[in-house]
Design a protein around this nucleic acid. Structure first.
Lengths: 183, 183
DNA sequence: ACAGGTGTTAACTTATGCTTGACAGCCAAA
DNA sequence: TTTGGCTGTCAAGCATAAGTTAACACCTGT
């Protein structure tokens, strides 16, 4: 990796702003902006931040889009990687092969009756999304507890301390997606 | 703004990795890494990306762009927003309220028998993940066709032209997550 | 023919990303 | 105490690449 592609062109064109106009606003030459857009040069961090601000996005967004994932895209039910270091009575399966370029981490949770994520709450960076496929679970965010039945979902900041448990008398199944990956 | 502060120290110490060890891994000098940590120098974009990878985070996090999501996190089955502009015979539901700070877009697809995404393939930025909850669907990436049964999943670059269809005789249900959001 | 817009390229200068090599502080074993 | 091996920091310098200027080719409208 000797250059990081920055996706400016699409965003710029979406906002109907010409290359020269954007360059003027950023106080860099139009020529250099063109070089950045065409992947022939990399901006400095400061310039990149300025570009992100001007286009009303984030640096992460500008460079996130260039990430390419390779390898076999499919993970079948049988091939799922089982995570051992999981919780007691809860089976966690990775739904895609680990890859540093992947921005999401999809997990499948099989929770036995009356199981939970343990005593300590999880706090990390990013966002997560949970969709209940079967049964019902409880997710606690910062002491507020939400009950999710089959078909319900939740989206929250991973920085909020979170725990979860299967309240029901039946097994529960949930799809869990983190961004960025935590494992 | 002539320098962008990069928050490495905390993450590095959290992972119990010394400055020199991290520098070795990144193939930069320990000295330079120290300069970056203390705000005396800025890394290049490539180096910053490497740092983010090594620390299992994103560039956005390193430079303090942690986006926070607000509002009610839960979307129940009944409250799901139905997307009208979807495909014929395919019902698409948004599984979380739209929010520019959200980095993922979870969708639920209900596909009638023998329905598809239409003639033209989709090509956009980002990555996506699909998990089949019910039935079986076919996803074509760049002319390679994958068949996914219940419990199977796929993870691919959105930039690959993609189409999908329900091949089975029964209705299919799939969870679809895009990053970044497309709607 | 212009004039004014679009984006791209080659060649150059100069700023800075990154290095080497030294430094001080700390802890443990001899 | 000394030695060794860690820890992180700093100054000075080099070489690379960030950013420039000035030209280019392509439009569209007058």
């Amino acid at each position: 990796m000797n250059i990081v592609r920055v996706n400016i062109k699409n965003l710029r064109e979406e906002r109907r702003i010409s290359l020269r106009a954007l360059a003027r606003q950023l106080k860099i030459s139009a020529s250099f902006l063109s070089q950045i857009e065409t992947g022939k040069a990399s901006p400095s961090l400061v310039t990149l931040k300025n570009i992100a601000n001007a286009l009303q996005t984030t640096v992460g967004n500008l460079i996130g889009e260039s990430q390419k994932v390779t390898g076999n895209p499919v993970t079948t039910e049988k091939e799922r990687l089982h995570l051992n270091r999981a919780f007691k009575g809860i089976n966690v399966y990775l739904l895609t092969a680990p890859d540093p370029n992947k921005q999401m981490e999809p997990l499948l949770l099989h929770m036995d009756e009356h199981t939970d994520s343990g005593d300590s709450a999880y706090t990390h960076f990013g966002q997560e999304f949970v969709f209940v496929i079967k049964g019902a679970i409880e997710i606690s965010l910062n002491k507020t507890t939400y009950t999710l039945k089959k078909g319900d979902s939740i989206y929250f900041n991973s920085s909020i301390p979170h725990t979860f448990r299967n309240i029901g008398k039946e097994k529960a199944e949930a799809l869990w997606v983190d961004t960025p990956p935590t494992f």
